[in-house]
């Protein structure tokens, strides 16, 4: 009985909700720390280096898979709870007075959570999916002075020394001609192609000549400064952070209660920290798109 009870029973659902929820709180704190780099002016290189680390480091990968699983489990468990709880009272009351005994947040966790889930999906489509799968993801560039004194655009490489090798056309792309020129100039020694969006590889021996950064910084800045939709994206983001804040307002301390931690010793501290967390974290998240959008 014990095994199935740990999955199906009403109390077990609490544990899973609490554990996944608290793990997602940790994720929020980490994600926020990363995002705050966007508030530092001219921080493209650092931010893109950070983005590369976050998408390639094996330890981070484990954490990110845990995060995906937590989000899915938390959402599925939440929908299940809402469905079952609706069935527990088939005939409702004609007159209710819910604010007399419970907080707005605690009564609307499902709605708030759904808003947050929709936000997460759109957020992942806009940033995560592009970073991982978009073949046209821009590469980090910088403006330098050529020997002739003219300004030119170059790709920023992971190792700086290899950088001057590649000059870009005006649209900032490596043209086909460029690859052909190299091939003829080196008498076929260097037959180059682009692999995995960021790598320029010599087909002959598989040597990685150059590796650039996916320009997540530019993608983010352009997204919130988009002439047409930038304002809508910014407002949407801020509204989602309101939903997140209310969700956390109840969720954070509720998780501890679910795990059986409730006593005069720590509960006041947990509640205080939970409320501070639910205000500070969404607020800082929301400041970022506001800052990007309104400081063109």
């Amino acid at each position: 009985m014990a095994k199935s009870a740990l999955l199906k029973s009403s109390i077990a659902k609490k544990y899973w909700m609490a554990l996944t929820g608290l793990f997602l709180c940790l994720f929020l704190a980490g994600h926020l720390a990363g995002n705050l780099q966007l508030l530092v002016p001219n921080n493209a290189l650092n931010f893109n280096q950070y983005a590369l680390f976050m998408t390639t480091n094996p330890a981070v990968k484990i954490l990110s898979y845990l995060t995906y699983i937590s989000i899915l489990f938390h959402a599925i468990d939440g929908f299940l709870l809402t469905y079952q709880n609706a069935k527990a009272r088939p005939i409702g009351y004609a007159k209710t007075n819910p604010s007399a005994n419970s907080s707005f947040s605690s009564r609307n966790m499902a709605v708030l959570g759904t808003i947050v889930l929709i936000f997460i999906v759109t957020h992942m489509v806009n940033f995560w999916a592009k970073m991982h799968y978009d073949k046209n993801m821009p590469l980090a560039q910088k403006e330098t002075l050529a020997q002739t004194g003219k300004k030119q655009i170059q790709l920023v490489g992971i190792k700086d020394s290899q950088m001057p090798f590649f000059q870009l056309d005006e649209s900032g792309k490596l043209s086909k001609e460029f690859f052909e020129n190299i091939k003829t100039q080196t008498q076929g020694q260097y037959d180059l192609e682009i692999q995995d969006v960021t790598k320029i590889v010599n087909k002959k021996d598989g040597e990685v000549i150059f590796q650039g950064y996916k320009d997540l910084y530019k993608l983010t800045i352009d997204f919130f400064r988009d002439a047409k939709y930038g304002l809508i994206f910014t407002i949407g983001y801020v509204l989602a952070m309101f939903a997140l804040g209310f969700h956390l307002w109840h969720g954070f301390s509720s998780a501890f209660q679910s795990l059986g931690l409730n006593g005069p010793k720590y509960t006041p501290a947990i509640k205080f920290f939970g409320k501070a967390f639910s205000v500070v974290v969404p607020l800082l998240f929301a400041i970022i798109p506001l800052y990007i959008h309104f400081t063109k």
Binding site: S9, N85, A88, S106, R107, S258
Partner: peptide, 24 residues
């Protein structure tokens, strides 16, 4: 274990810690 199992079988809902019960 037995009391929680019986509670679930009776068709009561799942607690979400709203705290309304404690107040009322």
């Amino acid at each position: 274990q037995n009391m929680v199992r019986q509670m679930d079988e009776e068709g009561f809902g799942n607690c979400t810690n709203t705290g309304a019960c404690e107040v009322e």
